[in-house]
Design a protein around this nucleic acid. Structure first.
Length: 157
DNA sequence: GCCAACGTTGGC
DNA sequence: GCCAACGTTGGC
């Protein structure tokens, strides 16, 4: 099993929104970055766990844990002219953009803020904390996963 | 709201 | 293929 971090602006779709969604599940659509696309299409597998990160928030930080319940498939919002994420170069028979489905597993008892993460030596190498890092889907190591779960006071498994 | 850091686009 | 201009992300 692998670990990931996915970003969402809580004003748009928060972890609480995911918990309130039907089956606590949603399409992780709208990613329009090739590196993140490759992760979504090729690397994220059923049962992988993801931190759910709130970006552009007060404060920004990790709100909970979700799980991949459907592996990469074409992001149909790219085909819809009326969708804000419409992209004419993505065709149904040759899709450019992919998405997965994720399901809420557990909210953290409290949000672990970005500032707290920066204070932890064991997390220095975390993709999220690198200067200029803005990948919306990114890998998390097992050690980082366990460290952050311990900070939040939740089981890492 | 500002702005630094990126990624993408398009002229050449 | 280079690179300037532009748009976006996201912390602060």
């Amino acid at each position: 099993m692998r670990y990931w971090l996915v970003k969402s602006e809580p004003d748009v779709f928060s972890f609480a929104d995911l918990q309130a969604a039907p089956k606590k599940t949603t399409h992780w659509d709208g990613v329009r970055n090739y590196q993140a696309r490759n992760t979504l299409r090729d690397e994220m597998k059923r049962g992988d766990r993801c931190f759910y990160y709130h970006s552009n928030a007060e404060p920004s930080g990790i709100a909970g844990i979700c799980e991949v319940v459907r592996e990469g498939y074409p992001d149909h919002t790219a085909f819809d002219k009326k969708d804000p994420h419409y992209d004419p170069k993505s065709k149904p028979d040759a899709p450019t953009w992919y998405m997965v489905d994720v399901k809420a597993v557990k909210a953290f008892p409290r949000l672990i803020a970005l500032g707290e993460l920066r204070d932890v030596a064991a997390l220095k190498g975390m993709v999220l904390l690198q200067k200029g890092s803005r990948l919306s889907v990114q890998p998390v190591t097992k050690k980082e996963w366990e460290t952050i779960c311990a900070m939040a006071g939740v089981s890492a498994t």
